[in-house]
Design a protein around this nucleic acid. Sequence first.
DNA 1: GTGGTCTAGACCACA
DNA 2: GTGGTCTAGACCACG
Lengths: 135, 135, 135, 135
Amino acid sequence: MIFQIDFQAGKPVYLQLADQIRYAAACGRLQPGEALPALRPLSEELRVNRNTIAKAYAELEAQGIVETHPGKGCFVTANRSPFTEPVRKSLLLTEIDEAVVMAHHLQVDKETFLQLVRERLDYFETKLEAAQNGK
Amino acid sequence: MIFQIDFQAGKPVYLQLADQIRYAAACGRLQPGEALPALRPLSEELRVNRNTIAKAYAELEAQGIVETHPGKGCFVTANRSPFTEPVRKSLLLTEIDEAVVMAHHLQVDKETFLQLVRERLDYFETKLEAAQNGK
Amino acid sequence: MIFQIDFQAGKPVYLQLADQIRYAAACGRLQPGEALPALRPLSEELRVNRNTIAKAYAELEAQGIVETHPGKGCFVTANRSPFTEPVRKSLLLTEIDEAVVMAHHLQVDKETFLQLVRERLDYFETKLEAAQNGK
Amino acid sequence: MIFQIDFQAGKPVYLQLADQIRYAAACGRLQPGEALPALRPLSEELRVNRNTIAKAYAELEAQGIVETHPGKGCFVTANRSPFTEPVRKSLLLTEIDEAVVMAHHLQVDKETFLQLVRERLDYFETKLEAAQNGK
DNA sequence: GTGGTCTAGACCACA
DNA sequence: GTGGTCTAGACCACG
């Protein structure tokens, strides 16, 4: 899993994290029974207080999306309501549009923008492979 | 102009509003030189404090998207970003990363994602041209 | 009369002006019966809205320090309670101390500071003579 | 530390507080490295909202007089102004002008005024040295 | 009528 | 416990 926290966003960090996990669980990227990252390593990777991670997991547990087994970890429960295809596309389009709008106001042209997008796709791909090899 | 505020979203109201105005300016629905709604009437329409609207406008002014003239109002500027090259790139990367991470969580593959991005770029370009011709 | 408005001070402009006139009247710098500057020229000199000057004069009239005779002007009334010597000194020391404290934090040394003070004293003296010759 | 707020003064509370802290730092009553009172206790003592105290501290931080460390507190810095030469001169001139204008309104002549300024400079210098020796 | 500022209360991240 | 942020209400300057 890759997470991306925006400390300037105004949105509480614990909600940003919970949202990202919820999306991943809703579309099958996180399978039922799969373990979430442990508190300590994740808090170090994201440079966030452990309490904040715990708060995100607690939020998800309250919503029935994960179950915490003290001493073992936090696991995804059976997936009750996966996002439908149109919902997923709409979520993604919202994010893409925000980037495109920002590019317009920053006067970044189409080709430069597409090149930046490719770079970031490659960057996250590399990061993900490294994480999997390190397992 | 009509704006839509979601008070349950967790996202600050002033950012929701700023995003929508940025969006409208990027697709030509708000033309350069055009006046934004005055603080008081808009605050009544959206059932939000006047200062919250003012904060959204201030955010847009800091980004060079609008100019405010005390006693007169707040106007869309001709499009010129006040930021230096590295700052602009960093702002844009933040937006791109959010979209890329969302694609990852929704299990949208690289090529599909790039295709969506191209579609949205074209969509905005078309709307902008149409709005400018309709002037 | 010389007035000095600080637009950054947070203190309302009309109160800054009223205070300065009150101090001048309280210590005899403005004599009973003497006329205050007319609204229009003063508003131009201070780069302030005429309404703001009028509000300062109204404030002083409400306190019985001046009397307004419509069509003629605004005149200092009999001076009921001039500041005593210790009060005047204390008012002045407060202002001096604020300048000295600022000099310390800006790391401006004693001699440079004294030189600046002399320059400003000369500057205002010149300005005052010019105003009197222009009468 | 004890501070004295005048709610009738017209001067914003946060500026009154900032001025008093600046004064205390300039005369050595607050030493570099020393902690300012925490927001909550001070806001209760002064019967003022916590944000008002925070705004005073933010003002002092912008002037390089204190540093705030989230979660820990707000500390007096070693004295080093963050402003460029012209900005510092302009800030200082504003303060000097206020004192000079007050002297004029109170009919204090040039030489008396300069003598008062010298006295206050010496007074602060003495207090500061005494405080540093008492460390 | 316009926008700007000061003060306040509630909630969040963090040591 | 610490400081930071978002939202709100009241008052000010001004076209």
